[in-house]
């Protein structure tokens, strides 16, 4: 495993379209639930423990078993009741594959897999292990929403990165838990849901004007 390779994959500057998504933050800002740093922190904590854990688990599983991508893809489908979130996840999966094809030699992964499945397959092709795939997924879950918070609320970017630094041990814990289930049957993988993310994504998809795609 190469640490530098992991940094390349987890870098926010990877041109995989992540900057276009707020990770569900924009509708909660609009609803008035997220206004300042503390509520951003609570948002990130809840997101990491729910969809972050699921993303990390599926990235780890897809990295360990990249040939089973279709099965994992269906596993994310049944854990994502919101059609808007399914669409956003597939768009990000496709964009990640497009970027990664120029970086590593990828196996066939379907046209538009869910983002965590694509991430696992790409991590495997890059020579990374399940734990590294899970760390990248967990970190990506919070870092994308954190940078959206800076743009949506005009928050101090230093303070927001302070949140990410404090969440790093939680990301490690989530990733370690996720890597442990990398060999489990799909139905037994984590399925922690976040109802307000689902509902918010559906409301958000009906807006005529929005800053982020999801």
């Amino acid at each position: 495993m190469s640490l530098a390779t992991l940094l390349v994959l987890a870098d926010g500057r990877l041109p995989s379209g992540g900057h276009a998504h707020s990770g569900g933050l924009e509708p909660q800002v609009s609803a008035g639930r997220v206004r300042e740093l503390d509520s951003v922190a609570e948002f990130l904590r809840g997101k990491l423990a729910t969809t972050g854990l699921v993303a990390a688990a599926f990235a780890a599983a897809a990295c360990a078993r990249p040939g089973n991508g279709a099965e994992f893809d269906q596993g994310i489908d049944v854990r994502t009741p919101s059609p808007a979130l399914r669409k956003a996840s597939r768009a990000q999966g496709r964009a990640l594959l497009r970027a990664a094809r120029a970086m590593w030699t990828l196996p066939s992964a379907g046209r538009e897999p869910h983002q965590p499945v694509a991430l696992g397959i790409v991590a495997s092709a890059a020579g990374l292990g399940a734990l590294e795939a899970a760390v990248a997924a967990a970190h990506g879950t919070v870092s994308g929403a954190a940078s959206a918070a800076v743009r949506l609320l005009g928050l101090d970017p230093y303070a927001v990165h302070g949140l990410l630094a404090r969440l790093a041990p939680d990301c490690d814990r989530i990733a370690a838990a996720a890597a442990k289930t990398a060999g489990a049957p799909v139905d037994d993988l984590p399925a922690a849901g976040a109802p307000l993310l689902d509902i918010g994504a559906e409301l958000h998809a009906t807006w005529e004007v929005r800053l982020f795609a999801s």
């Binding site: 997220v34 948002f43 809840g46 997101k47 976040a194």
Partner: peptide, 17 residues
């Protein structure tokens, strides 16, 4: 679907959950 609430569930009363 799994849903966790209460003191053992991080961020459950936050704006994502």
């Amino acid at each position: 679907h799994e849903l966790s609430a209460g003191p053992a569930a991080p961020g459950w009363s936050g704006p994502a959950v």
